[in-house]
Computed example of a mutant assay.
Amino acid sequence: MYDDIKALIESIGEFNSYIGKENIWEFVDFIDKRKSWDKGRYAIYLKSFVNDRG
């Protein structure tokens, strides 16, 4: 993952949650624009959430 995206995600701090049938996911969405792109694009960062039951 790019360092600037890592920093952006860390600065957001609060994640949304999605509860599926077997997993819980935490996610955040944002607009990303790389140097070579003409316009920004919608991006989603997600990670699985693990509770005390694994």
Rank of each mutant, 00 (worst) to 15 (best):
D3S: 15
F30C: 04
G40P: 08
L8V: 00
K47F: 02
V28G: 04
K35G: 09
W37G: 01
K47R: 15
F27N: 05
S11W: 03
N16S: 15
S17W: 08
K6F: 06
R53H: 03
F49Q: 12
G40E: 09
K33G: 05
N16T: 04
N51H: 11
V50N: 12
N51C: 10
W25G: 02
Y18A: 12
W25Y: 15
R53E: 14
G40A: 13
K39F: 12
V28T: 14
A43M: 14
V50H: 12
L46I: 00
G20F: 06
G13W: 04
I5V: 15
Y2H: 05
N16V: 01
L8D: 11
I24F: 10
R53A: 14
Y42P: 04
E26V: 01
K47D: 05
R34N: 01
K39Q: 13
K21G: 04
I12G: 03
D29Y: 09
K35M: 02
I44E: 07
D38P: 05
Y18S: 03
G54M: 09
A43E: 11
R41N: 10
V50G: 00
W25K: 13
K35N: 09
K21A: 10
N16W: 05
E10K: 13
V28E: 03
E14R: 02
N23I: 11
G54V: 02
E22K: 15
S11E: 14
K21I: 03
I19E: 14
S17H: 12
V28W: 02
Y45W: 07
K6Q: 00
F30N: 09
Y2W: 08
E22D: 14
F27T: 08
S11R: 10
M1H: 06
I24E: 15
R41D: 09
E22F: 10
S48A: 06
F15K: 10
I5K: 08
G54A: 08
Y18R: 08
I19C: 02
D3G: 12
M1N: 08
A43L: 07
I24D: 11
F49C: 03
K21F: 05
